[in-house]
């Protein structure tokens, strides 16, 4: 079976209950918005394949339940995520304050080099705004991650957010591949490796 994509990226949406994770995902995967919302129980995912600089990238985006009570279960899915969207609701101060807890969760459960991005959702509700754009930007700077305000309902910058995260993961991955540089793959003898002399099929002594 021919592969229909070049890369598969596993992404994860996290953030407080009701910030719009499922809606953001629905907007991105179906380009639609459902007004009869439903809370997410457990975990689900959606797929969308995008084109990025000539590569087909299959995004497998996992949507989790936001309530703290379910964290012991949902954190199991952090493992293996290559990118994480931290979502808060710009009309809900608490959801913004909790981002630091979500970051801590990532540090405890996700792989160290996971790409992260901060999303302030519901930006169409300007009249109800509790978190200014500047505070969002400031927090992102603090964590050294990118930030974007989105609206799943009004379809504002959702596409852009996912493309950016995907592009960053791709860049990081290609950099890694380049560094490890296996020209044809397979089992080859290494030309050089830090802390270790080139191994061979025959026995060779190494001091560690």
């Amino acid at each position: 079976m021919a592969k229909t994509y070049d890369y598969l990226f596993k992404l994860l949406l996290i953030g407080d209950s009701g910030v719009g994770k499922t809606c953001v995902l629905f907007r991105f995967s179906e380009d639609a918005f459902n007004t009869t919302f439903i809370s997410t129980i457990g975990i689900d995912f959606k797929i969308r394949t995008i084109d990025l600089d000539g590569k087909k990238i299959k995004l497998q985006i996992w949507d989790t339940a936001g309530q703290e009570r379910f964290r012991t279960i949902t954190t199991a899915y952090y493992r293996g995520a290559m990118g994480i969207m931290l979502v808060y609701d710009i009309t809900n101060e608490k959801s913004f304050e909790n981002i630091k807890n979500w970051i801590r969760n990532i540090e405890e459960n996700a792989s160290a080099d996971v790409e992260k991005m901060l999303l302030g959702n519901k930006c169409e509700l300007e009249e109800k705004r509790q978190v200014s754009k500047e505070r969002g930007e400031q927090l992102a700077i603090e964590y050294g991650i990118k930030f974007i305000e989105t609206s799943a309902k009004a379809s504002i910058r959702v596409e852009e957010a996912f493309f950016t995260l995907a592009r960053d993961i791709k860049a990081k991955m290609e950099k890694k591949l380049e560094a490890s540089n296996p020209p044809k793959g397979g089992h080859q003898l290494r030309a050089s490796e830090p802390q270790r002399k080139p191994p061979s099929w025959l026995s060779r002594c190494t001091l560690l």
Partner: peptide, 19 residues
């Protein structure tokens, strides 16, 4: 593999990055 990847991204659209 002994490589380090930093989060230094050159995307100009994103001004708020601190590495």
């Amino acid at each position: 593999n002994d490589i380090t990847v930093d989060s230094d991204m050159q995307d100009q659209e994103w001004a708020v990055v601190n590495t």
